[in-house]
Simulated scan of single mutants.
Amino acid sequence: MHQVSTQAQYLLDLLGIFGFALSSAYLGVRKDFNLFGTLVLAEAAGLGGGLVRDLVLRVPSIAFTDPGYPLAPLAAALLAYRGKPLHRQPRLFDLLDAVGLGMFSVTGTVKGLQHGMEAVPSAALGVITAMGGGILASAVAKELPSSLRWDSDLYAAPAIAGAGAAATLHETGALDVMTASGAALTAFTLRLLALRFHWRTGRSAAWRAASPQLSPLLPGAYAPPASSTRTTVADTMRLRVIRTPQGHGTGLRSAAPLDDTMRLRAINPPPDRAPERHSPAAPLPEVEATRLVQPGPVGHRLPSEPRHSVSPQPPQADGHPTRGPEGA
């Protein structure tokens, strides 16, 4: 194998660290992190993959011996936190993240080869180096990593392509500075194409087959199909603004009352809770309560009792107001 020069590898590492760190620092800014939190995300994204790589190789991490490695994420965090014009160009962060992906997939593979690992384990180490920092930063930010989501553009595939190209070049004896840069460019280009044309893997066949039974309230999350014995309750709340007829004065400033209606409808209640006069399979009658609310001045309080659209029946003597006398 033709040895890649140490100086070139150092520059590639710094460029990849800066790209990853700037992308994750922008994530911290979007989530309203303070300066220290943004710096933590930048350091985790920029150095996390390299730390995992060095732990696997059982070598001292260069991030703690060379000041350039921690200073690159620091510069990225300050630039993302203070650089207002950068926030108007969100695609710039995708571009820099793609740069880091391509660089780290190759440098991680090359470092594994330099420490005596075989081609396939070295390529796997390159993929871990390229993706580990972003996964760690997303975990710190309590966000699902985009590289693991089905609805995100291809991320792992470009890293695998770059690491695989570097390992193949090593096996053929053609690995040098130029060819390693070409492998990194391959991963970078694939990532940009995936972002441009939205190349994705899609959901699994099992997930798509069961999708009609999944809950629509949590898209993207699995929910077991509901049992037929469970209660299904449909609740609806709506607000409607109506105009007051001319001449209908209320003494308040606004002449547009608010008609707020809340409906609750129970469908197929469980047999043990169903009223005796209804069968378990029959839906309960719909009950509607309407309250007219007039917006008034500051300090105006809403009426405590709703005004029903249907006047209640007057109570009858010696009995229930609706059933009449007992025993009738």
Rank of each mutant, 00 (worst) to 15 (best):
R196D: 13
R238L: 14
L214H: 04
D176R: 07
A165N: 03
P158G: 01
L175F: 03
S211I: 06
R196C: 08
A187Q: 03
T189Q: 04
G162D: 03
R203M: 09
L239P: 11
G164T: 05
D151I: 06
L169E: 02
A180T: 04
T172E: 10
A159E: 04
D151W: 02
R230S: 15
A226F: 10
S181C: 12
P216R: 04
A209E: 08
A223W: 08
L190A: 04
T232A: 10
D176Y: 05
S215T: 14
R196I: 13
L185W: 00
H170Y: 07
Y222M: 07
A180D: 02
V177L: 11
G164F: 03
A187G: 09
R191N: 05
W150V: 14
V233I: 13
R191K: 14
L217N: 12
A206N: 06
A206R: 10
R200N: 00
L195R: 13
G162C: 05
I160H: 01
G202C: 04
M237F: 15
A163H: 00
D151Q: 05
L190G: 02
A223N: 10
S152I: 01
A234W: 11
R238C: 12
W199T: 07
T172M: 13
R196E: 13
S204V: 02
I160E: 00
L192V: 11
L214M: 12
Y155W: 03
A180G: 08
S228M: 11
Y222N: 03
L190N: 00
W150H: 10
L190E: 03
A163D: 01
T231F: 12
T189S: 15
A226Y: 09
G220V: 00
S204R: 07
S228F: 12
A223E: 05
L195N: 12
S211Q: 14
T236G: 07
S152E: 10
S228D: 11
I242H: 11
A209Q: 12
A184F: 01
E171Q: 15
D151P: 02
A184W: 00
W207K: 00
G173S: 06
A180V: 04
R230M: 09
L195T: 07
P212G: 01
A209M: 08
I160A: 02
L218R: 13
A174W: 10
W207R: 05
D176M: 09
Q213G: 09
P216L: 10
L218K: 15
Q213C: 09
L193S: 06
A180F: 03
W199E: 04
D153Q: 14
V241Y: 08
R191V: 05
A180S: 12
A156S: 09
T179L: 05
G182S: 09
L239F: 14
Y222C: 07
T229Q: 11
S181G: 15
R208E: 15
A159N: 02
P158V: 03
A223S: 15
L190I: 07
L218V: 15
A167H: 01
G182C: 13
R230I: 07
A167I: 01
H170N: 11
T168V: 10
L154V: 05
A226P: 00
G220W: 01
D153M: 05
W207S: 06
A163P: 02
